[in-house]
């Protein structure tokens, strides 16, 4: 198991390097520069500015400088928000995004796995068809539609919940953003779980367990849950990616001062270092999660460890 984990971690390093390189190139390739929108007194001033941030160095050298900074945990200074380092800015915005994303993820997993399992156990019933239908709806409607509709319904019309990051703070503020963000993931997890649970429940070893008189609850808990979770676990990586992209929209709509909102502003301003910093952070997160997924796979399926 240790060997397996170690190999997985080593395998993640090239992936991460590639992602950083790609992100670096893409940010530079976008038209426009950080100082285009600003009044610059003279070309000399602009030259000094560009020199200060090393923008005129050859690209490979800029990349190496950036990498060596990364190794020390230094994401560089923000080009546009003078006086702040990228790490500081991310650190400020992260708690909001983390709370939003983690809660949404947890909600999606718990409800999704639960709903999928129940639907599988009552396959073909009204309950099953309701869950299947609802989850199809959940997958089909994009976040930027769900968010305003929920706001209109629960905040404007019914006035049960606050519409955004305004006056009222506290738990109620989080309900709509979290639900909006969780909805598509929840729907997808429920569908995945239903399909794989049906699969597992029809397998030979579940028939053996039934022949041993274990009872449905025990069979699900002891025999079926772990293998049925495997597809859901391998979906965790894409799910986190979905939550991250979703949070960009959700944070904009609800005005949450999180990473997603900051990322959009940074991109529009050509804040090279900040955009890159957020991308590197997101990428590391997703690579790390995929790593966790691989390791979890090994924990659940003993046969994987030996490959």
């Amino acid at each position: 198991m240790l060997r397996y984990t170690l190999f997985r971690i080593l395998g993640a390093i090239p992936t991460l390097l590639l992602v950083i390189a790609l992100a670096f190139m893409m940010v530079r390739a976008a038209p426009g520069g950080p100082f285009d929108a600003e009044y610059i007194p003279s070309t000399e001033v602009e030259k000094n500015l560009r020199d200060a941030y090393g923008l005129d160095d050859p690209l490979p050298q800029q990349f190496l400088t950036y990498l060596s900074g990364l190794l020390r945990g230094d994401l560089g200074p923000s080009i546009r928000q003078t006086g702040y380092s990228v790490a500081e800015l991310i650190g400020e915005a992260l708690p909001y995004s983390f709370l939003l994303g983690a809660t949404a993820m947890l909600l999606a997993l718990l409800l999704g796995v639960g709903a999928g399992t129940v639907a599988a156990l009552r396959q073909g019933s009204l309950l099953d068809r309701t869950i299947t239908g609802l989850s199809l709806t959940g997958i089909s409607i994009p976040v930027f539609v769900v968010a305003p509709v929920l706001v209109l319904l629960f905040a404007v019309k019914l006035q049960w919940l606050p519409a955004g990051w305004g006056s009222a703070r506290g738990a109620a503020t989080w309900v709509l953003p979290v639900v909006t963000l969780a909805l598509p993931q929840l729907a997808y997890v429920a569908r995945l779980m239903r399909a794989s649970m049906i699969d597992v429940l029809s397998s030979d070893f579940v028939r053996t367990a039934r022949a041993q008189g274990l009872g449905t609850a025990t069979i699900v808990r002891v025999h079926a849950l772990k293998p049925a979770m495997l597809p859901v676990i391998s979906y965790l990586g894409p799910a986190v990616a979905g939550i991250l992209t979703g949070s960009v929209v959700v944070e904009e709509v609800f005005g949450i001062p999180g990473l997603g909102e900051m990322f959009v502003r940074a991109a529009l301003n050509r804040d090279y270092t900040l955009v890159l910093g957020v991308v590197v952070f997101y990428a590391s997160l997703i690579v790390a999660l995929n790593l966790v997924v691989d390791i979890l796979y090994g924990v659940i399926d003993p046969r994987v460890r030996y490959r």
Binding site: S203, D204, F205, R207, T208, H223, P227, I300, D301, P302
Partner: peptide, 21 residues
């Protein structure tokens, strides 16, 4: 009745046991 009164052995032991347990 199952297990306590009637036990059963299936054909394919590769499939009849739970590989995750």
């Amino acid at each position: 009745v199952r297990a306590r009164r009637i036990g059963i052995v299936f054909q394919d032991p590769m499939l009849a046991l739970n590989p995750y347990l």
